[in-house]
Simulated scan of single mutants.
Amino acid sequence: MTPTATSGAVHGAARRVQQPQSWEPSVYRAPTPFGPLVLSLQPAPGVELPSHEVLRAALLLAQAEALVQLLEDWLQAPIDLEPGSPGAAGPSAAAHVSLGPAGGGPVLQAQVHLPWAWLQALPPREPALAQQLQALKWQPLATRLVLSRQGVQAAEWAQLCQPGAALLLPESFEPAGWPCALRPLDSVGEALLPQDLGAQWQPHAARLQWLGQPSPAAAATGEVMLEVLLRQPLMLTPPELLAWAGMQVRECAGGAALLERVGVAHAVVHPAQLLPLGLRADGRAGHLLRME
């Protein structure tokens, strides 16, 4: 981890220099086998720092040492941080943490961007490590619940776009539960992962569960590919999405949905409602989609 300096020299310099009330974030990058790690350190207002760039960087990195050590323990490899530019390269997950001396106020705010490939390849197996990582303030991701993926003919698609039209959702009739998929989105609304995560929904019990594993590819043919999505995205953190603590379960009721054409830029999204059909003795029912 660079640059380095002795703690006494750095802290002495910090005491001797009068500084403004706020500092711009300092950004550091490090290569990993899964892509670049980006660490941003924002000193708290009023914190005294040396004006010399190398000393200031050494002081900030010294305050972030525990966080970097945690990431090195997770990666099982050293992390060599160098000054860099803001912004993560490629799909990443962000976590925040306040850093400072024990019993004192925060000295700086840290934000770390980790490649998604890292999170998926290295789920924390050791309970102590998993607990430390989940204690970070992970940034929640807007996550779509994909309820159905079907292929239809062009004429059928044109009819479906009309108010009052209905579409049967065959997945909803599965006796073990409704197989669906979780699709986390990036900041511009695009899919963050190359493959959705499999889930199972029980709308009669308002229960959604998943294991953080990729969803099986849906086999569907037709002139037009379409998807049915729950209208309101779920807000889930990376540890929740990847099920670091095992099976994840959350409350999730049905109701409003969206119908969207797949693979068409700027496709119109049609609002719809999920309607139950054929209630069984166990309380489950198949569903259809009715266009608004």
Rank of each mutant, 00 (worst) to 15 (best):
A142Y: 05
A165M: 02
L167C: 09
L129A: 12
L167A: 09
G151T: 02
A142M: 10
G151L: 09
A154P: 04
L167G: 09
Q131L: 11
Q153D: 13
P140Q: 13
L168I: 13
L136P: 00
Q162H: 09
A155V: 11
L167F: 07
L141E: 14
V146M: 03
L167W: 06
L129H: 07
A142W: 08
Q159M: 03
P163C: 04
A154I: 10
A135R: 06
Q153I: 06
R149D: 05
G151P: 03
L136S: 02
W138C: 02
A158I: 01
A165Q: 08
L129N: 10
L167N: 07
A165V: 01
Q134L: 07
R144S: 13
Q159A: 08
V152F: 11
P163F: 02
S148K: 02
Q139R: 15
A154L: 15
Q134S: 11
L168N: 11
L160V: 01
L145E: 00
W157T: 00
L141I: 12
S172V: 07
V152T: 10
L167E: 03
L169W: 10
L133K: 01
Q139H: 15
A155S: 15
A155E: 14
L133I: 04
P140F: 11
A142I: 07
W138H: 03
Q131A: 14
L129T: 13
A166C: 15
S172H: 05
R149C: 08
T143V: 14
A155Q: 14
L136H: 00
G151W: 07
Q153W: 04
Q132P: 07
P170K: 10
C161I: 05
S148D: 13
L169H: 04
L168G: 13
Q139K: 15
P163V: 01
K137A: 13
A135M: 05
L147I: 02
P163W: 00
L147N: 04
A135T: 06
L133Q: 08
C161H: 00
G151M: 08
G164K: 09
L168Y: 10
V152K: 03
L169I: 13
P140R: 12
L145P: 01
A165S: 15
A158G: 01
A165R: 04
L168K: 11
Q159P: 00
A158F: 08
Q131M: 06
A130L: 10
